[in-house]
Simulated assay, not measured.
Amino acid sequence: MSTALAKPQTRGLLAKRLQFHIVGALMFAVAERRKKACADFYRNYDSMKDFEEMRKAGVFQSAK
């Protein structure tokens, strides 16, 4: 009883692996930009000022 091993893929292997890693790198770059943008936004964010602006605009019905 002997089973033959499957032959390794050699044709197109580099292109397939590069495509996988390029997609991963692009997703990482987008995630890093989003994290930086969020950090920049919350660095100077004043929640009370934002609340007062929304209250004056009439967004909240229970707060006068």
Rank of each mutant, 00 (worst) to 15 (best):
M1T: 13
S2P: 08
S2I: 11
S2K: 14
S2H: 10
S2A: 11
T3R: 01
A4C: 15
A4R: 12
L5S: 09
L5W: 12
L5A: 15
L5I: 14
L5T: 13
K7G: 11
K7I: 12
K7S: 08
K7L: 13
K7V: 13
P8D: 05
P8I: 14
P8M: 09
Q9E: 11
T10E: 05
R11C: 14
G12D: 10
G12S: 15
L14E: 01
L14K: 15
L14S: 10
A15V: 04
K16H: 12
R17Y: 08
R17D: 06
L18E: 03
L18C: 06
L18D: 01
L18K: 06
Q19H: 02
F20M: 09
H21A: 07
I22E: 11
I22F: 13
I22W: 13
V23I: 11
V23T: 15
G24S: 03
A25F: 14
A25R: 08
A25T: 13
L26E: 06
L26T: 04
M27Q: 09
M27P: 00
M27G: 13
F28T: 13
A29C: 13
A29V: 11
V30P: 03
A31G: 15
A31N: 07
E32N: 07
R33H: 06
R34G: 03
R34H: 00
R34L: 06
R34P: 00
R34F: 05
K36S: 07
K36A: 10
A37C: 12
A37S: 07
C38H: 02
C38G: 02
A39W: 04
A39R: 10
A39M: 12
D40P: 03
D40S: 03
F41G: 04
F41P: 00
F41D: 01
Y42R: 05
Y42C: 09
Y42N: 09
R43C: 09
R43V: 10
R43D: 07
R43W: 05
R43A: 08
R43M: 09
N44S: 08
N44P: 00
N44G: 06
N44V: 07
Y45R: 01
Y45N: 05
D46T: 03
S47F: 12
S47P: 07
S47K: 11
S47R: 12
K49D: 03
K49M: 06
K49S: 09
K49C: 01
K49Y: 01
D50R: 08
E52H: 04
E53N: 14
E53C: 04
E53R: 06
E53F: 03
M54I: 02
M54V: 07
R55Y: 01
R55F: 00
K56H: 00
A57E: 04
A57W: 01
A57I: 04
A57C: 05
G58M: 08
G58N: 09
G58P: 03
G58V: 11
G58E: 01
G58Y: 06
G58R: 08
V59F: 12
V59T: 15
V59R: 09
F60D: 02
F60A: 02
F60G: 00
Q61N: 10
Q61C: 13
Q61A: 15
Q61I: 14
S62A: 10
S62E: 08
A63R: 00
A63V: 06
K64S: 09
K64Y: 01
K64A: 12
K64E: 00
K64F: 02
